[in-house]
Design a protein around this nucleic acid. Sequence first.
DNA 1: ATAATTTGTTAGATTAACTAAACTTATTAT
DNA 2: ATAATAAGTTTAGTTAATCTAACAAATTAT
Lengths: 219, 219
Amino acid sequence: MASPTVENYLKALFLLSVEKGEVNITELSNLLQVKLPTANSMIKSLHEQGWVSYEKYKPLTLTPKGKKKAALIVRKHRLTEMYLVEKMGFGWEEVHEIAEQVEHIDSTIFFERMDELLGNPNVDPHGSPIPDKNGDMQQKVYDPLGVCLPGDTVKLVALVHSSSEFLKFLNRRELQLGAKLKIESIEDYDKSMVVSYENHSFETFSKDVCDALLVERLG
Amino acid sequence: MASPTVENYLKALFLLSVEKGEVNITELSNLLQVKLPTANSMIKSLHEQGWVSYEKYKPLTLTPKGKKKAALIVRKHRLTEMYLVEKMGFGWEEVHEIAEQVEHIDSTIFFERMDELLGNPNVDPHGSPIPDKNGDMQQKVYDPLGVCLPGDTVKLVALVHSSSEFLKFLNRRELQLGAKLKIESIEDYDKSMVVSYENHSFETFSKDVCDALLVERLG
DNA sequence: ATAATTTGTTAGATTAACTAAACTTATTAT
DNA sequence: ATAATAAGTTTAGTTAATCTAACAAATTAT
C-alpha cells in the first residue's frame, strides 16, 4: 500500500513528534537524509493522501490515520529488534540496520508470530516502548541518570538514543538494561558521575552519557 | 546496490534458465507480471550493467556475474523459507510470500546467522537446493513419482513446484518430505497411482500430482 | 524597524519502473 | 511460398522520488 519511502516519512514524523512535539520540514529532511525540497513535495503528497495535516509555513502533524500507520511501523521495527536480540543472538548495537529493512515487510502473520514467540514484549532491546496492535504506545517518563543524587540507587531501564557508537561504549563497560546502579559521587566541575554496578566499581560517566541513560529510582 | 526490482528480474532469469534452459522475454514478463515492453527495456538496462547477455531477438542468458548474484538471492529466499518453517513454526505453504520480501534484505550477518542457526541446510522446505555462499547450486536430478512402477518403494524428497494450492493439497493428505511411499498400483486409463505411506493406505494420486512429486528409490 | 539568517516553496530536470500503441522480425501452418 | 500468428522492439507518455537553483516568508539579531 504505502511505499517504503512513504513509510519512512511517516515513521520519522512520528518519532520526531514524540520527542519534540512539533515537527518542521527541515528536521524531517535532515533525519531522512534528503534535501529540503524533496521532503517538501513529499509532505504535500502525504497531505493529499490524508496522512499528514499541512498548511504552508506551519509545523506538521500526523492525522490520526497517519499516526496509527506510523506507530504500527514502529511496532514492526521494535518487535524485529527484540526478535533479533532474543531469538537470533544479535547484540543490541547490531539490530537497528536490519530492523530498518524488516519493518517494511508486509505480512501480518510474520509479525504476529514474532510477537507470540517473544511473549508479547512491550519494550525493545533499548528500552523503547513497542506500540500495541492498535498503534497505541504508552510512553513512560523516566529520569535521566543525570538528575539523580549521590547515594541514590537506580535501575537502568532505557536509553535516550541508541546510536551504535553509544551502544558499543556501554558494551565496553558491560552496562546493560536492568543493571542496578549506585551513585557514588558527582564531580561538581563537569557534572560527571562516579557510579558502581554489578562487577564495576567507581566507573566515571560524563554528563553526556548520564543524560542518555534513563533510570528508575529504587527503594 | 541492485534494486529489489532488478533482483527480481535476475532471480526470475535464474529460475527460468534452471528449469527450461533458454529464457525468452515473454516468459520473463509473464513470470514477473509486467508487460512485454517493460521487461524488454529492463533487459536492455541489465545488459548494459553486465548482468545479462543480450542480442536482439535472441534468447537471454545471465552473465557469470548475473548468475552468481541471482543465486545468492535464491539462497536468501530459501534460507528464509527454511528459517520460517524450522524456527518460527510456519507451514511450508505460508513461507513463500514472506521470503519474497525478506530475500531483498541487505545484511550479510542476518543471513549468515540464519544459516548457522539452521545448521547450514542445503535444501529448503520444499526440497529445492539452497545455493552455497559462492552462489553454486548443485541441482540433483530426481525421478518424478510418475515414472515409478508398482511395487517400488520410494522416499519423497522434493517438489517440482510449490504453489500454495498444491502444498495445501499435500497437507490435507498428510504427505510430507521424507515420507516413504509404496506404489500399490497404477491405473492404466489415466495413469493415476494408488500409493501407501505412513498411516495412509491406498491413497489415489492423479498423474499431475505424481509428476510433481520428486522421489528417490529405496533398496 | 530593518537587515541578516533561517526556513520553506516553486520551478525545472533527472532516473527508475512502468504502460499503451504502433511497428518489426521470427516462427508456424497451410 | 506466403499468409497468419507469435515474439520482440520502439516510441511516447505516466508516476514516484529525487535533485539543483531561484525565490519568498518567517524569525532573529542588532
